[in-house]
Design a protein around this nucleic acid. Structure first.
Length: 231
DNA sequence: AACCAGGACGTGA
DNA sequence: TCACGTCATGGT
């Protein structure tokens, strides 16, 4: 029952909004002007990213910086880092704390995030290109379940479904998940309902965010949400 | 001018 | 386990 609903919602959102082209990369020129505020970086229908280690690292950094933060602010921080040629694990580690904080300041929580980035960059460099395990990522200070899954799904094309606040709001409102259901439970229910395809996981999560930005940002959540009526 | 954003951690029940 | 305070900037 709920498994079918999860698939129904996916197809509904895909038809309504079209492919979203996540994860955005500031180095990708394919702009999507329909994305509010974003300068560039979305690549709808193109699942060939990341294409190199720099892009992969950029996704990881973005996943950390976007914690409880508007993507527009993250983008400013990423551009600052890129302009200083510090969007690689080695160059990031070479920065002084004060400099790093200044560069990522627009993304907020800059003291915490500077530390998180440093911890992650150290791990990333040591990996030397190897795909991290989920347990490894979760053991790092500053990497929680959502950030770990975002990194695995978008930077490494691993089939882990990303559960964020919007996912909870939408599917709680649809009575498909429970209000107090924990992260792991929700993730596993999505993963068992869907075909095990990282492309689908990527697209679905991006669609949920796009949809929720319209209907689940301001309270009361879900006002006028067309999914509730359709499913 | 409040309210919110693609969370995680530390603490105390 | 789990609820709650903390972390901070910038957009609408």
């Amino acid at each position: 029952m709920s498994a079918q609903c999860i698939n129904d919602v996916y197809h509904f959102l895909l038809e309504r909004y079209g492919p979203q082209g996540w994860w955005p990369l500031i180095s990708v020129p394919g702009t999507n002007p329909t994305k509010s505020g974003a300068i560039q970086g979305y690549h709808p229908g193109d699942f060939s990213f990341p294409r190199n280690e720099n892009q992969r690292f950029e996704i990881c950094v973005g996943a950390i910086l976007t914690q409880n933060t508007n993507w527009l602010n993250v983008e400013k921080a990423l551009i600052n880092l890129q302009e200083k040629n510090n969007l690689s694990c080695q160059s990031l580690l070479s920065l002084a704390d004060q400099v790093l904080c200044e560069l990522i300041k627009p993304s907020g929580y800059y003291n915490q995030k500077a530390k998180k980035l440093r911890v992650f960059a150290e791990y990333y460099c040591k990996q030397n290109g190897a795909t991290p395990t989920r347990a490894d990522l979760l053991s790092l200070w500053g990497i929680g379940p959502e950030t770990a899954d975002s990194i695995l799904l978008y930077a490494y094309q691993q089939p882990y479904f990303v559960v964020d606040a919007y996912t909870r709001r939408l599917f709680t409102s649809l009575s498909i998940i429970d209000d107090n259901e924990n992260y792991e439970s929700i993730r596993q229910r999505f993963e068992s309902a869907l075909v095990k395809d990282w492309r689908v996981y990527q697209e679905y999560h991006a669609l949920i965010v796009e949809h929720a930005k319209h209907y689940y940002s301001k309270k009361p959540w879900g006002q006028g949400c067309p999914v509730a009526a359709a499913v």
